[in-house]
Design a binder for these strands. Sequence first.
DNA 1: CATGAATGAGATTTCATTCAT
DNA 2: TATGAATGAAATCTCATTCAT
Lengths: 223, 223, 223, 223
Amino acid sequence: MAHQKKIQASGAPDATAGATKRGEDTRERILSAAIEEFCAAGFAGASTTRIVQAANCNIRMLYHFFAKKEGLYRAALERVYEQLRDSEDRISFWQRPPREGVAELTTFTFDYMLENPQFPKMVLQENLAGGDMARELGSLYSRSRPLIANLDGLIENGFADGTFCKRPSATDLYLTILSLSFIHISNLHTLTATFGEDLTEAAFLERRRAHAVEVVLGYLGAD
Amino acid sequence: MAHQKKIQASGAPDATAGATKRGEDTRERILSAAIEEFCAAGFAGASTTRIVQAANCNIRMLYHFFAKKEGLYRAALERVYEQLRDSEDRISFWQRPPREGVAELTTFTFDYMLENPQFPKMVLQENLAGGDMARELGSLYSRSRPLIANLDGLIENGFADGTFCKRPSATDLYLTILSLSFIHISNLHTLTATFGEDLTEAAFLERRRAHAVEVVLGYLGAD
Amino acid sequence: MAHQKKIQASGAPDATAGATKRGEDTRERILSAAIEEFCAAGFAGASTTRIVQAANCNIRMLYHFFAKKEGLYRAALERVYEQLRDSEDRISFWQRPPREGVAELTTFTFDYMLENPQFPKMVLQENLAGGDMARELGSLYSRSRPLIANLDGLIENGFADGTFCKRPSATDLYLTILSLSFIHISNLHTLTATFGEDLTEAAFLERRRAHAVEVVLGYLGAD
Amino acid sequence: MAHQKKIQASGAPDATAGATKRGEDTRERILSAAIEEFCAAGFAGASTTRIVQAANCNIRMLYHFFAKKEGLYRAALERVYEQLRDSEDRISFWQRPPREGVAELTTFTFDYMLENPQFPKMVLQENLAGGDMARELGSLYSRSRPLIANLDGLIENGFADGTFCKRPSATDLYLTILSLSFIHISNLHTLTATFGEDLTEAAFLERRRAHAVEVVLGYLGAD
DNA sequence: CATGAATGAGATTTCATTCAT
DNA sequence: TATGAATGAAATCTCATTCAT
């Protein structure tokens, strides 16, 4: 990316790089404030005014860099998906034995949703808004291919060597993993009110993480 | 529903009863338009103007019946939970053999979310908004007690007679059932874009319903 | 029109009439302020804020009565045409001898543009903006039919009795009359700068009015 | 035009000349985009942003060459008048016999307005805006003197040799010629809507051009 | 000659809500 | 039960213009 070059070149910052760097800074501040706001309020509910207040800059800069509220939203949605896929790239669950690999992917996903609440929030907001932007972002599909391919390989191996006695499609299995990682985040408050139990307590989450792994492996017939 | 009782009871409809009936009608039109709007836009994003336009009545009527936007929202949220619990009351999964009972609850929940999208939508909106209203509605807790108790009984029976080899808490199991019924609704559009697969197709949903049952029973060690 | 009835009924003003009357008042104030503003600045250049300041009311009233800036503009354009046609209806040039009739229509048109500058201004603004609204207003065509028909009759009579030796279409003749009544209004400032002569002076206008009549009658061969 | 001379003179193009040429090019692109924009939107309605987008250059260039929006507007207005007077200089109507001379000036003016719509548009916009800039441009007066003088001579000659039986001032006659050339341009859209006739059709324009000549000569008593 | 960053003011429009009748 | 009139605040977005490089 452009600004990474600048960072590398910042040993001898010239005039141009200085100007650009300042711009990238502001842009980045706006974008990260925007993610917060869109998570909390969705596209329609988000306030550009609040965003620039949080980013500590003039509202005109938002339009300078992103042209429209929609452009900013697109960048925000792209960013949270990018972060998830980048993180996934850093684990190599598919290189491990089938049981362990599936368990690792499950705990990773479970923990990611917990520690990066902007992902489930942005995703839910986008879906509730009708998913128009998701449909336009080709990167959603392309960047998920490696994960699906790797998971598919793992399932094949596990089935071939008799570890698994089921052989679901990778998307089906991933959907199940995702669902078990999502529900206590997406429905946190209503479930808390319904069960009378605090779903953010460490004890609950430990138990639930273990339960998720148990469910997935139990289904695959691997425990 | 409340206003139907009134209609039945109006053995001698006088002017007042007529007025009440018309009023109830308007109230009902506003409430159902409001559910639509809150599903689509959330509390903050919803527009009282749009609601009364859809309900084909004057804005003052909204304030006449519900006092504030918040009052209308509360009524809407209460209504969708009421409908779910009413429907659950109509199945008697807990009276069946353990395997069948769990399977029935799973398919019921799966189908309910599919056929009554206003439930997951309202619930997700409420959660994204912070769940303030859910915390205030005591009915969420009280009306879920029978379900939890009945499911608990079923798990006990299944474990006692050896059908199940796991013995999770009822809330844990219900959470898993709910998650498998929710994810393809809550994340419909982003998943469609991510997988390049249409999650509303009958073929996908059939397969997915079966998968959900398989996962739950597989986990319980009952297949 | 509705508000005329109210005026008649205002001998015994009831509650409903009072409310409506206040509304009509405000509406009328907004509309007449809007005509001023649209004349001076055109549709795009006009400021709704300035309009409501001149009308001495809240900006929300503008949207209450006219929904959009465009709706207000439409009403304003319709109004100025209505006023012209209403005024034309009050002269009966077509009942006079041909020479006098044409002369009367010419001086009437000449004076109308002078005394009602909002007409030429609104019309010019609309044309410069592309005429989108004019195309939508069917009343422009329908309300001009009587004038055209009457002028046509006059030309026929004049030609039949030998007063005129030309027999142009009514639209052609009216266009010429209009052009001679328009140019010193539409191009007032640039012509003043170009000729170094003040085109608003009474002496100039007297001479010019006479010139216009002379040109029209001269062309028809009637002098 | 100024910058074409420079191109021809660049016998030995050095770096500076190249830069100047590029600069003139940009300046010219901005000016011609500005004329378009001012024609369409007037001074107040015009957007400097849109102008530089159409001119395909940075907004700072506009300020580099023209200092303010007003400076650009002045240059645009000056340019369209310059083009008209330059064109008029190329016809020598005053050297012809009176009837023919007047006819030529009429058809020339009629056709010029038709083929160079930026002239009437800019002029009308300037007038609707109050004519402040026209008052400041001394060139309007000075550059119109030759035309007026030449037309005056023609009228004198025609009256002296008995071709004309009227002897209007040159400004009066020119005003009439201009009006007949202007009305179907300035009021194009509203007249089209009013008459239900397309004023841009070749047939209409042919007839109208002939009508204009007929009116002018008819008035002068020369037909 | 050229450009990216930055700004304060003002544009239209929508918001939830209340008053008077 | 029902409605037309009215409001202040805040929404997104565009305006002409300047600074620094």
